[in-house]
């Protein structure tokens, strides 16, 4: 089983911080225009969201794992709902590597695997180094071509 790059935690923690800031802003709005909120409660809620966000990010990193198995790409992820997904290579329609501005700043990249399915139709593996991502994309593409099936949708 392969873990993600540890730096992905920074991205997820950043998301937690953004969530905390947003909650803070909403509460500030409520405080200003609707009802007075005691400063202690205000600080407490924002701090709780922040701590939860960071804990979630750390836990998500611990949980996230993937592996190339004999017939399928296998992934494990999820903090609240733990999901184990198998994407058979036969079912891979195409593979993307993607990175957003923040991911790029962190030197990270994601691989997105598309299937023709209706749910979980795209499976994303975040937090890979660009080299590893390209490598994984190539491997998946080769495996997908190798095992192509005679029943496209």
């Amino acid at each position: 089983m392969e873990a993600l790059h540890p730096r992905i935690r920074l991205l997820w923690i950043g998301q937690g911080v953004i969530a905390a800031v947003l909650v803070g802003l909403v509460l500030a709005g409520v405080d200003r225009w609707l009802v007075d909120i005691p400063t202690a409660a205000y600080g407490g809620v924002v701090a709780a969201v922040l701590v939860l966000g960071i804990a979630y990010a750390v836990r998500l990193y611990q949980v996230w794992q993937f592996e190339l198995q004999g017939d399928a790409l296998y992934l494990e992820r999820g903090v609240v709902t733990f999901v184990e997904t198998a994407v058979p290579f036969v079912r891979v329609q195409h593979v993307d590597t993607q990175f957003g501005p923040i991911e790029r700043a962190l030197g990270l990249s994601s691989v997105v695997v598309y299937t023709a399915g209706s749910r979980n139709a795209d499976v994303r593996i975040p937090g890979l180094t660009p080299d590893r991502a390209r490598d994984l994309q190539d491997t998946l593409r080769e495996l997908a071509v190798e095992s192509e099936a005679d029943d496209a949708v």
Binding site: T81, V83, A86, R91, N120, A121
Partner: peptide, 9 residues
């Protein structure tokens, strides 16, 4: 079958 997932909340 396209994908199979096991989910646990």
């Amino acid at each position: 079958i396209q994908t199979v997932s096991t989910r646990r909340s």
